[in-house]
Design a protein around this nucleic acid. Structure first.
Length: 466
RNA sequence: GCUCCCAUCGUCUAGAGGCCUAGGACGGAGCCCUCUCAAGGCUUAAACCGGGGUUCGAAUCCCCGUGGGAGCGCCA
């Protein structure tokens, strides 16, 4: 039987890295075993579900490259099916209508809490024959009273729940709409999901779902409850940490494979390997080897991994990602050759694509002014001679290459009896506007002859007047 | 309160009874390379939550504490 996994987010909040990781695990598991990955949007909460959140899920999954084989399915479009199973349940005696009012339920809960008991429904309507006038009933699942349910979880091992701890949960509201735990069961059965991989906050729901599955005569899926992701401070993930939309990472200049690599290493490892390509993840990931404990989100490591992936990616691809980053900074970069050249020289000089773009601006347009500190130190009366010497040698170059530029700078230094720093730094500030850039020879090569000479002339005038 | 889950450096993890003087990675510190910034290389500080057992031997198995988390909704 083919492996079938699913990612089933609810669009009541923005998709964040916690959700992305469970999606990744499900996707990886399906890919590893040649299975099917299903995307299902659990939007039965009409009040809180939003169109925007749904869009973030769709866009986010696409950006990350976590493509689904089936779906997306929307639970709101499957209402007829849920009602059908509901009727079937009631007819078979697996579920019953409950006429207890919210007020009565509230009272029951308070009394139980008062004697320090676990709040649960007492089953009053289990054997009720007649409807209660004036009350729209909910539907409850008739959970077994005795015995136990064993959740065979591939991450946690066997987890045992006594049925006595479980009460008759509501599976349809008084307006007739089905609730989450019921929809999940029907969907997982209908979609023939073989492996349910989800956050371990669902572990407590699992025995109820298994009881319903059993009542339906469906086969049990394999469960894998993955631990949650905590914020960097060890507290529950919130907006302050990484609980922002996953698309924020795209906008901030992260590579999708870097984010995924970071996430896959949270709770899982393969020897001492830290950097994984998407192919390696698909080959090596093993859901059964995932840790049981929650792990904290570490932004520094994500940054490091991002740079590792940036350095490994083809410059052409980095160039593509650089375009929107530059555009966001007001630079319309159209020269693909230049873009690729910049990607090549800048890729080990930025932890994010955004940072790389910010530090590459002088390649694409003239800077408005020199960095004050850099100019004060390097564009002085003393630097006129080296600047002039380099300028003259460069302009005499037949071919504009890094090697030629290197010659020009070293020769100027030798002739003037100066150290490399005394020559390269003024040139660097002259052409880049700051004291930081890639090696001076490749910087000049990338900038091109015309731009380099023009900026050197500007700098010469500036230095002479300082 | 009840039920369930979890517990190795600051963080992510390796470790499935002797290979552990507890390994790797991020971050930190120092050094090297060097025209700046990086990248890279080397060195270094840093952990088995506590207590009982089991065993010739426990980070690893069991129990009890402690601490953290989740669930107990006509939310998902």
């Amino acid at each position: 039987m083919p492996i079938r996994t699913r990612f089933a987010p609810s669009p009541t909040g923005l998709l964040h890295i916690g959700g992305v990781r469970t999606a990744l695990f499900s996707w990886l598991y399906a890919r590893r075993h040649g299975g099917v990955f299903i995307l299902r949007i659990e939007d039965t909460d009409r009040e809180r579900s939003t169109e925007a959140a749904t869009q973030v899920i769709l866009d986010g999954m696409q950006w990350l490259g976590l493509g689904h084989d089936e779906g997306p399915f929307y639970q709101t479009r499957r209402m007829d099916r849920y009602r059908e199973v509901l009727a079937q349940f009631i007819a078979a005696g697996h579920a019953y209508r409950c006429y207890c009012t919210r007020e009565e339920l509230e009272e029951m809960r308070n009394q139980q809490l008062a004697v320090k008991a676990k709040p649960r429904y007492d089953g009053t309507c289990r054997n009720r024959k007649e409807p209660r006038p004036g009350v729209d009933p909910v539907v409850r699942f008739k959970n077994p009273i005795d015995g136990a349910v064993v959740v065979a979880d591939v991450i946690h091992g066997n987890v045992v729940f006594d049925n006595a701890e479980l009460d008759d949960l509501i599976i349809a509201r008084s307006d007739g709409t089905p609730t989450y735990n019921f929809c999940v069961v029907v969907d997982d059965m209908d979609m023939k999901v073989t492996h349910v991989i989800r956050g371990d906050d669902h572990l407590n729901n699992t025995p109820r779902q298994m009881n319903m599955l059993r009542a339906l005569g469906a086969s049990m899926p394999v469960y894998a409850h993955v631990p949650m992701i905590l914020g960097a401070d060890g507290a529950k993930l919130s907006k302050r940490h990484g609980a922002v939309s996953v698309l924020q990472y795209r906008d901030d200049g992260y590579l999708p494979e870097a984010l995924l690599n970071y996430l896959v290493r949270l709770g899982w490892s393969h020897g001492d390997q830290e950097v994984f390509s998407m192919e390696e993840m698909q080959q090596l990931f093993d859901i059964g080897a995932v840790n049981k404990a929650a792990s904290a989100f570490n932004p520094d490591k994500l940054l490091w991994l991002n740079q590792q992936h940036i350095m490994r990616a083809p410059p052409e691809r980095i160039a593509e990602y650089l375009k929107p980053q530059l555009a966001a900074l007001g630079v319309a970069a159209t020269d693909d050759r230049l873009l690729v050249a910049v990607a090549k020289v800048m890729r080990e000089r930025g932890k994010t694509l955004r940072e790389m773009a910010e530090n590459s601006l002088y390649f694409f347009r003239d800077f408005a002014s020199y960095d004050e500190k850099s100019a004060k130190k390097n564009l002085t009366a003393e630097s006129v001679a080296p600047l002039r010497s380099v300028r003259d040698k460069l302009s005499a170059l037949d071919e504009w290459t890094a090697a030629g530029a290197h010659e020009a700078v070293t020769q100027a230094a030798t002739e003037l009896g100066l150290g490399m720093g005394k020559v390269a730094q003024p040139v660097r500030v002259a052409v880049a506007g700051t004291a930081v850039s890639p090696p001076i020879d490749v910087t000049l090569e990338t900038l091109g002859r015309a731009t380099t000479l023009r900026r050197l002339d500007d700098a010469l005038r500036y230095a002479a007047n300082s």
